Structures are given as C-alpha cells and as structure tokens.
Amino acid sequence: MGESPVVLFVCVHNAGRSQMAAGYMTALSGGAVDVRSGGSEPGESINPTAVAVMAEEGIDISRAVPQLMTTEQVRGADAVITMGCGDACPIFPGKRYEDWELDDPKGRPIDEVRAIRDDIRSRVERLLADLVPSAH
C-alpha cells in the first residue's frame, strides 16, 4: 500500500469551512487520507458555530487552530480544495484542484451553518470515493 493521499482544504480564515471539511475527511477516511487545512488570512479562532454543528455529527474540531497555509503545503498536497478564497490561494499545475462554492458560515445562524456542513459532507464523501476507492 502506497502513501496516503494528501488533501489540503483552504479557506480565507481557516476557521469554518476548511475546518469542517478537514474534520469530515479525517473521520470518514479513517486515516486513509492525510488531511491538512489552512487559510490565506487565518482567523483568531475557529468558528464556534462550526464547532457546534460538527459536534452534532460526533466530530470534535474544537481543538483545531486556524493555520496559515504555506506554498509548500500546497505543493505537497495531492488534492487542493479551496473554498471562496479567490486569488489568495496559490494553484500549482498538475494538482487535483477544486474550488467549492460554499457560503462562509461566519456570523450565520446555526440552521444555515448546518446546511453548509451538510453540503461539505456530501462533497467530502465524493472526493474521498475518488481518492481512496476502497474506503467505504
């Protein structure tokens, strides 16, 4: 068995969307994927509503800390998923690259954040099936 594929989830503040995606990929892949996340302008702390809606799914992202995404991280990833950071996210040719159009959960009511979470989960499931076909 080869090395685990590396997936990097990126949003501007690394406080909501990318953390939820990383939480799902870690949980759903059962360790089959090396999951990283970062932001182009990391926030002060993770979005408490994102923490709450992930806890409803049994996934604890409360200890996650917004990190600055580095060019090296992007270069080292097999798949780079950006979420609404526009030109702030570097893209390297030859990488699997997707931009997920997701609303920023910051400041939104919990029902809207749940909808964003559910959208993220279905996208993560599709990505995981592509990256690790045996992980079901």
Rank of each mutant, 00 (worst) to 15 (best):
74 V>D: 03
120 I>L: 06
33 V>Q: 11
94 G>Y: 04
89 C>K: 01
102 L>V: 04
72 E>A: 15
61 I>P: 00
18 S>M: 06
45 S>Q: 15
105 P>W: 00
34 D>R: 15
59 I>N: 00
124 V>I: 03
52 A>P: 00
91 I>T: 13
69 M>E: 06
29 S>C: 12
96 R>E: 10
49 T>F: 03
11 C>G: 07
93 P>H: 14
22 A>G: 07
80 V>T: 05
55 A>L: 07
124 V>T: 01
16 G>Y: 07
2 G>A: 12
15 A>L: 10
122 S>D: 14
55 A>M: 05
127 L>E: 12
120 I>H: 05
51 V>N: 01
86 G>A: 13
61 I>F: 04
20 M>L: 02
87 D>R: 11
104 D>K: 02
70 T>Q: 09
80 V>M: 05
50 A>D: 00
101 E>P: 09
37 S>F: 09
130 D>Y: 13
32 A>S: 10
130 D>R: 14
79 A>D: 08
109 P>M: 06
111 D>T: 14
93 P>Q: 13
6 V>F: 09
110 I>R: 12
45 S>A: 15
54 M>W: 02
65 V>Y: 09
46 I>L: 11
4 S>T: 11
33 V>C: 11
98 E>D: 15
96 R>D: 10
11 C>Q: 08
76 G>L: 13
18 S>P: 02
123 R>Q: 10
5 P>V: 03
48 P>W: 05
52 A>I: 02
80 V>E: 06
81 I>C: 08
103 D>P: 14
94 G>A: 04
110 I>H: 04
108 R>V: 03
49 T>R: 02
47 N>C: 02
75 R>G: 09
9 F>N: 08
124 V>W: 02
131 L>I: 03
116 I>S: 09
32 A>E: 11
112 E>Y: 03
55 A>V: 04
44 E>M: 14
18 S>H: 02
77 A>Q: 04
16 G>D: 10
86 G>W: 09
81 I>P: 07
47 N>D: 05
101 E>I: 13
53 V>F: 02
43 G>H: 01
105 P>K: 02
21 A>P: 07
90 P>V: 13
17 R>L: 10
53 V>E: 00
7 V>P: 07
122 S>H: 13
89 C>P: 00
110 I>L: 10
12 V>H: 05
131 L>A: 00
105 P>C: 06
126 R>V: 08
34 D>W: 10
57 E>N: 00
13 H>Y: 07
68 L>Y: 08
8 L>H: 08
28 L>F: 14
106 K>L: 15
29 S>L: 12
38 G>V: 05
74 V>C: 06
98 E>T: 12
101 E>Q: 14
